[in-house]
Design a protein around this nucleic acid. Sequence first.
DNA 1: CTTGACAGTGAACAAGTTTTCATAGAACAT
DNA 2: ATGTTCTATGAAAACTTGTTCACTGTCAAG
Lengths: 219, 219
Amino acid sequence: MEELTKKQRAILDYMKAHVAEHTYWPSIRDIQAKFRFASTNAVFGHLQALERKGVLQRIPGAARAYKIVPEVLGDTSETVIRYEGPGDDAIAFESVKFAGSIAAGFPDYTESSGVLDAMQVPISASSRRRAPEAFALRVRGDSMIDAEINDGDTVIIEPGTPKHGDIVAALIDGETTLKRLIKQGSKVYLKAENQNYPDLIPTTSLTIQGIAKSVMKRI
Amino acid sequence: MEELTKKQRAILDYMKAHVAEHTYWPSIRDIQAKFRFASTNAVFGHLQALERKGVLQRIPGAARAYKIVPEVLGDTSETVIRYEGPGDDAIAFESVKFAGSIAAGFPDYTESSGVLDAMQVPISASSRRRAPEAFALRVRGDSMIDAEINDGDTVIIEPGTPKHGDIVAALIDGETTLKRLIKQGSKVYLKAENQNYPDLIPTTSLTIQGIAKSVMKRI
DNA sequence: CTTGACAGTGAACAAGTTTTCATAGAACAT
DNA sequence: ATGTTCTATGAAAACTTGTTCACTGTCAAG
């Protein structure tokens, strides 16, 4: 993976933030205005670079149409695992935090979202007693569909050391993803539970936020 | 809330599905092609109707740019049903607030109706729809197995007026059971979601404890 | 010094997209 | 009968947006 320049990263982040806030992508001129470019071509070049570096997919001929390509780490050296709680975007409540959406598939736009609103979801007191520092994540995408965790579900993440085969909330490139943890010796892989996705994702650096112990579905 | 026509509902669902799959909205021409309209103006009119009825917000002049307005669940049925609180088999319950980003990511583009919307509406704007007296029930038995509610699961019951097709916690012979509510004219039936069980249970008097809105499963 | 990659300006073009205008049949209530 | 609303056609206008072209400046490597 080729490295992104500072401005390219900023533009990519802005695009993510924009789609997170508005649910639609910014136009080239939106980006131009945001970064005070005098020409649309400046943005155009950066978008080409982002696509060439494989982190953004443009849809030819379509306006405000892009896809985020998940950034994959390529190496196969020994994996270093860190354990970490939910991100700063989680708002603390009485006992359970809701850390925003989790990407089980491609896009995760929760990072740069500024507006957080409260919502109420009942959680049984028994599960709360079990794990006082548990938090909830809303699942987005379909990469865990074979594990019966679907888009829109809410998973309860509890801290702990994951075993082989556990479903974990892991930080990859600053984005939280829900994957099954596969341990092979000292190497660790993440596996999407969807036949249409690549089998194993090798990771050199891995941050585990917790283990998915329960899934809550709206009926 | 004004009611949507069949085609309006179909178009709205298509738009939701499109943005869920592609992360960007369809153009008017995309919709036109999908529904085999001969003119873009047919779509245009439907979009205007959707906006007038308050379920869709268009961004003027911008391409592929919309916002979904969470739909309010309305039901005007006149069925006479008694409501009652939870019985002894209800699990002690504590309602916990979540905070999540509403605008973040693409909210609720999976299944059409407003089941998911309940989770997404800000607390300030939905106080009347909140469930301050929700409670949890541990499911025993397999009568709802076809609805993917299995023995050992926990369902969250919220008070409210059940619609046709809702899964309700009903009192039958002094015992709480979980069944799907079927309304046919003025008659009300209860239906077990298991092929091995009798199709419809006719009821002359019915006590509803609440509507099953969520199911929580241990992974 | 030269070369090439990178980043940008400024203008213009081509395509995509929304929006408006004119028209018309079907359903329906008055 | 008559008007209204909804739905739709067909065409065109108006606007948005992506894309291309020509040109300039910076900076580091060779």
